[in-house]
């Protein structure tokens, strides 16, 4: 009812048929913690090779939706298909990048060790990394422009480098779907640009990239599609087609301040407005 249907064909982009081109198909999914729903009745298709930002207020269910797709949370109801099968069937082709603050950066582990984790499901238990695995790690580090930092302990890296290590892990895994929780939160604009260039390149070679973000400007400018999420999907589609005053009002509710000229301004989430930016690279 308060859901807007996104245009399925966008100028200049190949339309996908509903059955073939979908990486993720979410049907009527609700999920939450305890007895509090975080997302309700989510129906959403994500095309292969798409670059999608999920944005919305704190507590709007962004991370919950990402965790359901990743198989880290079980929906209360509804179904999710990933690469044409139930969640978990193709888990080795799904890479999840946790929020930077959920990672223990003092862990005694080097950059190449983290990236090599991406190979774990492929190698399987008992097996050891071989030449192909080492090549995949080296190539992934090359792709995120960190080849010279393979031996660094992860805590010695800048904020942007820390995120790029985890993206390199997804690349080394040869995953089809990258799920990133807040990959550009708390980094400066130059670093953000660098990360988005990498994600853009990954989408261009057919990877499906889904990221949660608080940064509406980044979502609107750097992603192909946006999902406005406030427990329910308010809108889904290219930012320039679906983002308008009505959508923002429905998504953010009281955080929008109307302006005299008829526009609106979004007050930053209090949780994130004071966050200091991590070091510039």
């Amino acid at each position: 009812m308060n859901e807007r249907v996104a245009p399925s064909v966008i100028e200049g982009r190949t339309p996908f048929s509903r059955s073939e081109g979908r990486a993720v198909t979410i049907s009527s999914v609700s999920a939450g913690y305890g007895d509090r729903a975080a997302i309700s009745d989510i129906t959403l298709d994500l095309a292969r090779g798409s670059l999608t930002a999920i944005f919305g207020p704190n507590g709007g269910g962004k991370s919950t939706l990402l965790k359901c797709i990743a198989g880290l949370m079980k929906p209360w109801s509804g179904t999710i298909e990933v690469l044409g099968a139930a969640v978990g069937v193709h888990a080795a082709r799904v890479a999840y990048v946790p929020q930077a603050e959920q990672v223990d950066w003092s862990f005694p582990i080097a950059v190449d060790e983290v990236v090599a984790m991406g190979r774990t499901p492929r190698i399987g238990p008992l097996g050891r990394a071989g030449a192909a695995d080492r090549a995949a790690v080296a190539e992934a580090l090359e792709r995120v422009d960190m080849a010279g930092l393979a031996d660094r302990q992860i805590g010695e890296l800048s904020g942007g480098q820390r995120r790029r290590v985890f993206i390199a892990r997804a690349i080394a895994a040869d995953a089809e779907i990258y799920l990133l929780d807040e990959p550009v939160t708390g980094v400066d604009p130059v670093t953000q640009e660098k990360i988005m260039n990498i994600l853009d390149a990954e989408a261009a070679r057919g990877k499906t990239v889904v990221a949660t973000t608080h940064d509406l400007a980044c979502a609107a400018q750097r992603f192909h599609d946006v999902v406005a999420l406030s427990e329910r999907v308010v809108a889904h589609g290219p930012a320039q087609l679906v983002l308008d005053r009505e959508v923002l009002e429905k998504t953010y509710g009281g955080h929008l301040v109307p302006l005299a000229d008829g526009g609106v301004v979004l007050l930053d989430d209090p949780h994130h407005s004071h966050g200091s930016h991590e070091g510039h690279e």
């Binding site: 990743a70 080795a92 890479a95 946790p98 983290v114």
Partner: peptide
């Protein structure tokens, strides 16, 4: 199971998503 134990210890979410 060294690789698996390390992955699950360092990043349980990433390890879980990878199956």
């Amino acid at each position: 199971l060294w690789k698996e134990l390390l992955f699950a210890t360092f990043d349980p979410l990433g390890a879980g998503a990878a199956g």
